[in-house]
Design a protein around this nucleic acid. Structure first.
Lengths: 111, 111
DNA sequence: TGAAAGTGCAACCTTTTTGTTGCTCAACAC
DNA sequence: GTGTTGAGCAACAAAAAGGTTGCACTTTCA
């Protein structure tokens, strides 16, 4: 059904929003390398403070994109690819909806 | 190259952000039906004012997701699927990067 | 011509976001 | 033990986001 898109809209918006920031996209890219990284490591090379990075990580965590495990004194963050895959699928549905809408409109004009 | 992801990050963030709002996702879904719609039409059925919807449309327009053409006294908005397709491709790359990273890590452990 | 429909623009307000500093606390290394 | 490293928490400030109201301005149509 088409309402598949509507049903999940509210669930997807926060994930989009979480990725709607260059800093967080960079964090996702770093974590996408595979190895879990600590907050201190993720702060390295940025112009921001550790606390700022922590807040960004909490946003990503809240969106389900990353999750963290405490290991000794360090807090390791790891990427969870599922929400990202879901977003990709959602955008794919939007694309397909668009394509079929165009096809319908075209055949309507031609009839 | 892997830096493909890095190069486009800054360009993608605003598009993600534009989709990071339920109201705007709904607007995209409506426009995804194919026919261009006026601001008044897009306001119908929402609990928001026309001006609020206008602001949301400007955000989408600024991100390149929609563009508008003036027709008489009405301002018609139409979806542009390209930025959305690009986002999908971007997420696809992130997924693939993740998969290959896991494969590398796995073969490292096994060696 | 005059009313109604569709917009645009500006001012304003409230809430959220993004970032900082300062302090505390636990874990590791020596 | 003592110092250092990694992190959490709270208060604060600036900026951006999301929304409203009010008014002016075209375009359409009777």
């Amino acid at each position: 059904m088409g309402s598949n898109l509507a049903r999940k809209r509210e669930a997807y918006a926060p994930v989009f929003a979480a990725l709607g920031d260059t800093t967080r996209l960079t964090l996702v890219a770093k974590l996408g390398k595979g190895e879990p990284r600590s907050i201190a490591q993720l702060t390295e090379g940025t112009s921001l403070t550790r606390q700022a990075i922590t807040k960004h990580l909490r946003v990503l965590e809240h969106a389900g994109i990353v999750h963290n495990v405490r290991e000794g004194r360090k807090s390791l963050f790891k990427l969870d690819p599922k929400p990202i895959d879901n977003l990709r699928d959602y955008l794919d549905q939007v694309s397909k909806q668009w394509d079929s809408a165009l096809a319908r409109l075209k055949s309507f004009v031609e009839s």
